[in-house]
Design a protein around this nucleic acid. Structure first.
Length: 918
DNA sequence: CTCGCCACGTAC
DNA sequence: GACGTACGTGGCGAGT
């Protein structure tokens, strides 16, 4: 005997045990994996703990119509077993896959049960001098234990020796079958003899030796009933014995070489465990294989890589039909298919996220689910296949893209609109934009990007751009992405857009107001925004350069003074360094704290400036630094090379209230409040022969609040064209309107705006530099005098609590789930419930005006361009000689776009630059 | 070097 | 914690 041990795994029994022992485990696609997991854990533990020399797994493997000898012998054999549950049935193929991936031999034979195979194998192994360890917990198999044969139950961590069998059955293992014949087995429906169980059976066999001897000596057995039963059921006991006796003569070929534990099929193992989401089991096993010298880190990495590639191609090949087009014939066929389908999702692939820089690399179409076609036109990497030219493709697809009556679906179609426009194609007939659909359904979400939409509405994870193009410094532009990767990626974009549109539309059909908002407001607005972005605004670079130099000088002066007062070099832009200087070196009092330490913000520095000269200088420095860094130096960088203008992005699906936002650069926060900052506006100029018109809604939000609340005092005031801030001052200070001081009016204005944001007394006290009780009394007075506003706010919160959302006048809906919360989350949502209907209605109104005005500009060929929107203000660039005529038309269009009980008033200014136009 | 977070400040 | 909605900057620490 060479001391080697053969581990024989009773696979079938573990399958069942694991299935019932582990509940509720499934992978993300919903397939139950509980039994596979338990089974796999068993094998893993076996390998790790035992490091077996030789190993084999047995399965019961008999077809339904090929009965085992036991079934032939006894028709009721295992008859009380219920049918295999479906959750287990679908896991069956995987047990074999796991074992095969681990490269462990499987023993199975048609019409033969695992127990018999184990018995035969055990016998043969012992004959050639091997030790045997049976991995099971089946009592039937205990009859095999003996010299060199043990049993191990990895699930319970129990080992069984012949002594343990003696303890349980009171007989040696070779006689266990007689005990079982008497005791029977309910789980296999083996009858045995009534009234005799393991204990009694054991005693009897211990006394008589075997079944036949016992039956020949029934008269010697004690107990009347027991004697009767043994007599009556003698044949049943004989039958049971046949059933429990294991066959030791199965025709198996026993090849020791074949049974050695050998390195697994790592590729198969990685893929399989990934599919099952057994990543941690795989990690543990790989660690063991590594220790064994069968695996290295490099290989593990390679396997992961291949898995990623596999992922992409598998989705592509198995589930999705994604392809690329290289010939005109194929392109024409595609266009015919699209026309037949009656609608299509469209997406461009380009070299840049900036639509004014982007070059078209390819385009994709999807006209039926799980199907997408990519038409590459400019992949220029080494070895790229020959592609159709952009010119030819555009010629063919332009009629489709320009057809206003052929419905198209886009995701953020403004981008495609702009890029196509630059290529001379007018993208028309876009009926749905999934980004805008998602936005109107829930404007509070932080993303309405395609990846988010795919995940939220289709439960699908898109191929990531970084997976095809890489990340960071080495990120490829799309023209450098190999078509093997580009095609599935680009096709998926169109496919997902199409499929998401169906889901989004279903949801929108439940909310007709929101669907209307999408169809009649957001979709037409997108095009208007595209036009505005393309228009851009002219910027005088020289003015900015001059300001930059001016600010630079000031900054250097201030820096020197700051260093002196601080007693060393300090960066005034570093809150960390300022903390050190102000609160440690100078030991100034801490007024406010941030998450990371004492605050050094404006309000703090203002308070400290009464105690020390340094904070004032820091404030000065900050102010110059902000203007220089954010505006004066940043803006020239964004001037477009060809147009000499700045083309901002107007984001249409960002703000939770329905407002627009602007970025690259943000032209909605150009300074105006300080004289120095306001100078920056001088750099925004009109083209030659033109003037800028700035038209802004006067107090639009207050007027909306007056209208929506119906407050009689406010409405009356607006009706009579009264000064609303002075009125509020007279109300809260309880003085006559004509005696209101400018100081009081300022307070009135602060409160007018503050209440709409849900401002508390603390903030008001700080802003007005008054005491908290004073501030509180002002607010109380406000709601006392404007009772309609008080009631309206209460109703807004109550409605929002009841419905879970806030509504604007036009039915735009903002979900407020945190109204369910307590504390800060709740308070926040309450303020949003008050502010959103007001801010959001203002946003809706100006959007409607923009759509109408742009329509008129085009229809009547006005020599006017809409350039910017700043929430309550529109900036136009108008030919000088047309200004006088168009200015009042534009203003009245803005005023008349809706009719409110507090009339909308538009104020306007004209100038050569934005500063003068205000 | 790149990324993300923080603190801060600008607009309406 | 304390006023709604945004965007961009520089600093800074953690990761590459």
């Amino acid at each position: 005997m060479d001391g080697k041990t053969l581990y024989l795994v009773d696979g079938s029994s573990y399958i069942y045990r694991a299935f019932y022992a582990i509940r509720n485990l499934s992978n993300s696609s919903g397939m139950p994996t509980n039994a596979i997991y338990g089974f796999t854990q068993m094998l893993k533990k076996l390998i790790e703990d035992e490091d077996p020399d030789l190993i084999a797994v047995t399965f019961d493997a008999f077809d339904a119509d090929e009965h085992t000898f036991r079934k032939k012998l006894y028709d009721d054999y295992k008859a009380n077993r219920s049918a295999m549950p479906d959750e287990l049935r679908i896991q069956i193929p995987y047990f074999r896959k796991v074992v095969e991936a681990l490269n462990i031999p499987i023993m199975e034979q048609a019409g033969v049960e695992a127990d018999d195979l184990i018995a035969t194998a055990t016998l043969q192994a012992r004959d050639i001098g091997l030790g045997v360890c049976i991995i099971s917990a089946d009592k039937d198999l205990m009859q095999l234990l003996g010299d060199g044969v043990t049993m191990l139950d990895t699930m319970r961590g129990r080992r069984y020796s012949p002594d343990d069998v003696m303890e349980r059955f009171a007989v040696t293992p070779d006689r266990v079958k007689y005990v079982l014949a008497l005791a029977g087995d309910t789980s296999d429906n083996i009858p045995g003899v009534p009234g005799i169980g393991e204990k009694t059976g054991g005693k009897l066999i211990a006394e008589f030796g075997d079944l036949e001897t016992l039956l020949a000596n029934i008269d010697k057995v004690s107990g009347k009933k027991r004697k009767e039963n043994l007599t009556e059921f003698a044949d049943q006991a004989r039958l049971s014995l046949e059933l429990v006796t294991l066959r030791e003569d199965c025709p198996i070929i026993f090849d020791t070489e074949h049974l050695h534990l050998s390195p697994p099929n790592f590729q198969a193992l990685t893929e399989l465990f990934h599919e099952l989401e057994f990543e941690s089991v795989l990690q543990d096993l790989n660690r063991w294989f590594k220790a064994r010298g069968w695996l290295d880190d490099r290989t593990i990495e390679d396997l992961k890589d291949s898995l990623r590639d596999e992922e992409i191609t598998r989705t592509d090949e198995e589930r999705k039909d994604y392809s690329a087009i290289y010939t005109l014939e194929a392109l024409d066929a595609l266009l015919a298919d699209i026309k037949a389908a009656g609608r299509v999702a469209f997406d461009l692939e380009t070299t840049s996220v900036d639509p004014l820089q982007a070059r078209i690399v390819g385009m994709s179409f999807a006209y039926k689910p799980n199907h997408g076609v990519y038409i590459p036109v400019a992949h220029t990497y080494e070895g790229a296949p020959e592609q159709l030219s952009l010119k030819v493709v555009l010629e063919r697809v332009a009629p489709l893209l320009e057809d206003p009556d052929f419905p198209k679906i886009g995701q953020h179609y403004k981008y495609e609109w702009l890029v196509l426009k630059r290529h001379g194609v007018a993208f028309r007939g876009v009926t749905f934009d999934t980004m805008l659909m998602s936005y109107v359904l829930d404007p509070g979400k932080n993303s309405h990007g395609l990846d988010t939409i795919a995940f939220d509405f289709l439960h699908h994870r898109n191929i990531k751009f970084t997976d095809v193009a890489g990340r960071g410094k080495n990120q490829l532009t799309f023209d450098q992405v190999p078509l093997e990767k580009a095609t599935p990626y680009a096709s998926e974009d169109a496919d997902i857009t199409l499929m998401a549109c169906d889901v989004l539309l279903k949801q929108l059909q439940e909310e007709p107001k929101l669907l209307e908002l999408h169809n009649s407001l957001e979709i037409p607005l997108s095009r208007v925004l595209g036009i505005m972005e393309l228009n851009g605004v002219k910027v005088d670079c020289d003015i900015l350069r001059l300001l930059s130099q001016e600010f630079e000088v000031e900054l250097e002066k201030l820096q020197d003074e700051i260093n002196v007062l601080a007693g060393g070099e300090v960066n005034p832009n570093s809150p960390t360094q300022l903390r050190e200087v102000l609160f440690e070196r100078l030991e100034l009092p801490v007024k406010k704290r941030t998450k990371t330490g004492p605050s050094t913000d404006q309000s703090v520095l203002e308070q400290l400036s009464e105690l020390h000269p340094l904070p004032r200088l820091i404030l000065e420095y900050r102010s110059f630094s902000k203007l220089k860094g954010t505006y004066v130096d940043a803006l020239p960088e964004l001037i477009h090379e060809e147009t000499g203008r700045i083309h901002t992005d107007f984001n249409q699906a960002v703000a939770a209230t329905g407002r627009l936002s602007s970025s690259n650069p943000n032209l909605q926060n150009i300074p105006i409040r300080t004289d120095r900052g306001r100078e920056i506006r001088r750099a925004f100029i009109a083209d030659e022969g033109h003037l800028l018109l700035a038209a802004d809604y006067s107090q639009i939000e207050l007027r909306i609040m007056a209208h929506l609340s119906g407050d009689p005092v406010l409405l009356e005031a607006y009706h009579n064209g009264q000064d609303i801030h002075a009125l509020t001052a007279s109300q809260i200070f309880d003085v006559a309107l004509d005696t209101v001081t400018s100081e009081q009016r300022r307070a009135g204005k602060t409160i007018n705006f503050g209440v709409m944001y849900g401002m508390g007394p603390r903030r008001l006290a700080r802003d007005l530099d008054i005491s908290m009780p004073e501030a509180k009394s002002y607010i109380d007075n406000y709601f006392e005098r404007y009772k309609g506003v008080a009631a309206y706010f209460e109703k807004l919160v109550a409605d929002a609590v009841e419905t879970g959302y806030a509504l604007t006048m036009f039915g735009r809906k903002r979900l407020l789930p945190t109204l369910e919360n307590k504390g800060a989350g709740r308070a926040f949502a309450e303020r949003a419930a008050i502010n959103t209907p007001i801010q959001g209605t203002a946003a809706d109104i100006i959007k409607l005006a923009m759509i109408d005005i742009q329509k008129r500009i085009e229809k009547e060929h006005w020599p006017a361009r809409m350039l910017l929107q700043v929430h309550d203000e529109l900036i136009f660039e108008i030919a000088e000689d047309a200004m006088a005529e168009l200015r009042p038309k534009i203003c009245s269009m803005m005023e008349d776009i809706v009719s409110l009980n507090a009339p909308l008033i538009v104020e306007s200014g004209v100038g050569k630059n934005w500063l003068d136009a205000k």
